[in-house]
């Protein structure tokens, strides 16, 4: 069993350390709602950090604290596009500064593994440190790595995902028709453990990431978990036909589209997992107007990119 001991998430909803936030979701996507980073990050580190690093280190530190864990036995991050702000900054300098010397900081901070690397620095953590980057499935791949690691050894793993918005993304998204919902940022980390604790919030039952979007993928996944229908489904909801099909296939189950809540970014399924964990801990909740009774299982279906499916099955801890 894989236990979710804590969950810290920063998004365009009021998600960070707000238990029960699922009752207060806003229909309109606001700006990024961020905490006072100085509470979580050493000021000497913070000055160089872009938003994605600040969000990640704050969430990583908060998740460990909330799980009552001092050190992580592994840090595993997923990111679709990595540290875009620093990448753009350095690339811009490479192109525009002719013959002059270039400031190195943005280059140093541009690599995808800066997120997990900065966490290892901030937490003085010498253990396994990994970064998965498979666009819309990056988070699911990071989670499955964490689960594999818990099969190998007992411990507490800090796993999560982060992606940040920068302005130059907008014309690209417009060109490829990925602008139905606002482009946004989000980051979150979860402490996963093979042992139950007083902090345990939910159970991570199963994860799948696959280069396939066949209908059977979902069916097979539920079957291997001895489940015919989950009590709740959270799905990207990016394409209406997908959503309609899903509601048809699972007519008894409430289906919550999460992209309209958190906006579009590669690892938004981590937002959905954070949301699912919160909902599962509530007796009842209202999401998008409909009342949802207490439920034991929630399935996150991520088909943000055509031809790709990410599935995360969460169970109520008491279930």
């Amino acid at each position: 069993m894989y236990y979710i001991q804590s969950s810290a998430y920063i998004s365009h909803q009021d998600t960070f350390r707000k238990k029960g936030f699922s009752k207060n979701l806003s229909e309109n996507i606001s700006t990024l709602i961020k905490p006072d980073y100085k509470e979580f990050i050493n000021p000497s580190l913070i000055r160089r950090m872009s938003e994605v690093l600040r969000m990640s280190v704050a969430c990583g530190s908060a998740a460990l604290k909330d799980a009552g864990v001092i050190t992580a036995d592994a840090i595993i991050a997923g990111t679709g596009l990595g540290c875009l702000m620093d990448t753009e900054k350095f690339l811009n300098n490479v192109i525009t500064i002719q013959g002059g010397m270039l400031p190195p900081t943005s280059f140093i901070q541009s690599t995808h593994n800066t997120i997990a690397g900065q966490l290892s620095l901030a937490l003085s953590c010498h253990s396994y440190n990994m970064t998965h980057t498979q666009n819309s499935l990056s988070f699911e791949y990071a989670l499955s790595d964490a689960m594999l690691m818990l099969d190998e050894q007992s411990g507490n793993i800090l796993a999560g995902a982060a992606d940040e918005y920068i302005d130059p993304l907008q014309p690209v998204a417009n060109h490829f028709g990925l602008n139905r919902f606002p482009l946004t940022s989000g980051a979150g980390f979860f402490v996963l453990s093979d042992k139950v604790s007083a902090h345990t919030q939910a159970v991570l039952a199963d994860v799948l990431a696959i280069n396939d979007s066949d209908e059977n993928v979902c069916k097979d996944f539920l079957q291997r978990n001895q489940l015919s229908v989950p009590d709740l489904i959270l799905t990207d909801g990016y394409r209406d036909d997908n959503l309609r099909q899903l509601r048809q296939n699972f007519s008894e189950t409430p289906v919550i589209p999460y992209t309209p809540l958190c906006g579009t970014y590669a690892t938004s399924s981590a937002f959905a997992m954070h949301l699912a964990i919160d909902i599962l801990q509530e007796k009842t909740t209202h999401v998008s107007g409909s009342e949802i009774k207490q439920h034991r299982t929630a399935l996150v279906i991520n088909q943000l990119l055509p031809g790709h499916t990410g599935l995360i099955l969460i169970k109520n801890h008491e279930a």
Binding site: N113, T131, Q134, L137, Y141, A209, I210, N211
Partner: peptide, 8 residues
């Protein structure tokens, strides 16, 4: 099926 990328 499983197609993943690491970047460290």
């Amino acid at each position: 099926g499983y197609i993943n990328t690491l970047s460290t």
